[in-house]
Nucleic acid binder design. Sequence first.
DNA 1: CGGATTATTGACAGCTCTCAACCCCTGTGG
DNA 2: CCACAGGGGTTGAGAGCTGTCAATAATCCG
Lengths: 224, 224
Amino acid sequence: MQLSTIASPAQTPTPWPAEGGSTGGVRLLAPYDALFREGDETTAFYEVLSGAVRAYKIFPDGRRQIVAFAFPGDIVGFCQGDTYRFDCDALTTTRVRVIHKQSLLRAMRERPELAEKLLEVARGEVETLQDLSLLLCRKTAIERIASFLLTMARKAPDPVAQRLALPMCRADIADYLGLTIETVSRNMTRLRTLRIIDLPDRGSFQVRSLERLRQLAECDGTDH
Amino acid sequence: MQLSTIASPAQTPTPWPAEGGSTGGVRLLAPYDALFREGDETTAFYEVLSGAVRAYKIFPDGRRQIVAFAFPGDIVGFCQGDTYRFDCDALTTTRVRVIHKQSLLRAMRERPELAEKLLEVARGEVETLQDLSLLLCRKTAIERIASFLLTMARKAPDPVAQRLALPMCRADIADYLGLTIETVSRNMTRLRTLRIIDLPDRGSFQVRSLERLRQLAECDGTDH
DNA sequence: CGGATTATTGACAGCTCTCAACCCCTGTGG
DNA sequence: CCACAGGGGTTGAGAGCTGTCAATAATCCG
């Protein structure tokens, strides 16, 4: 499963020019700096080069839902209308490449094959969101957390026997998975007690049994 | 809010040729006939002309999640990879227009502006799925049902003072909203008790207070 | 009319949320 | 160097909502 509003790096090699020419430059963000806000005009979208960002929506009554985390190689702000539908800011020090919408549209008219690649990016985003919907709709708290950790683990070249970063705080995880901080915390320690993961410190985790993590995450019912 | 894997009819006038020529013909489906199954090769996608279809995924442990309902004007099966990621079948007698992927790709190479329209379709699909995620993540049972009914109501020209069809059974609604049949039933009657809706019979409903339905659906906290 | 299917309602259990206390780590200032 | 305050995370107790199981009611269809 992938995180939403994003295309994973492996399956879609960046289809736009890599040089920082007319497609745009690089922006540097400090932790919690805003990349864009809900309602801003969508003049560009962004490829995360290093660091991480979160995209989220605030409800009228104050509830917050994180729609996506984005990591190096991921794209944020794609598939938006004339204005952004959510807020987006950095989790840590982050560099993003700016891709201006207009110049991309121009390039698309000249090179139709570029459009196919962009449709692929959109497709990846749809898949990601479908998986998120499945997660939110059918999974228990521990299954959601297992899915989330598995997603984070898959980003690493060797997911096991190695400390993996969790750059977001518990509140962010909770608001992404549709849980509360306390439920996240409780089930993280439960996974630790079950010897499925280790929690060496706040900002990282380590997978001890990839298989059991996967069983929980994929709801195959063989581990209940 | 829109239902997922779908582009709403109003915002995207059908970008492909309307005649039943090389883009494909029309298929007629009886209730519960399959349109396609998970794993099938994606040779085409479909525009619903009349009736309604549901798209869903079955988990290894038997849980089911409905990812989308599609009604006339909506498109299903778009934004899929080489194989479909879910099953799709008809709720009622349904007619769909078949749009072959290959002929669409050819048309796109000839007319680059078509690609932009398709990206719009993809964008609509992404928005829809984001809304679904928000619904599943942050809303209570009654809020989900209010959101769902509001979506159904918005399809009608005059949403109030008129019986609106609910072509899907309670189990379908439950599996779409991430609830059980019983919870759906209980909260439907609760909405009726609150005089927000009427339930004249199984297959339909009627909005009595659009405002209060909207308040519940949009979580604005002024109606608790 | 009768059987099957679907929907509603009730009782109860369980999971998650809420509220609260506590712990750990960090940074600050005496 | 230590005391202290503050923030984030963990843990605990209890309440509430939703799920489960079961019985009943309504509807459909032959």
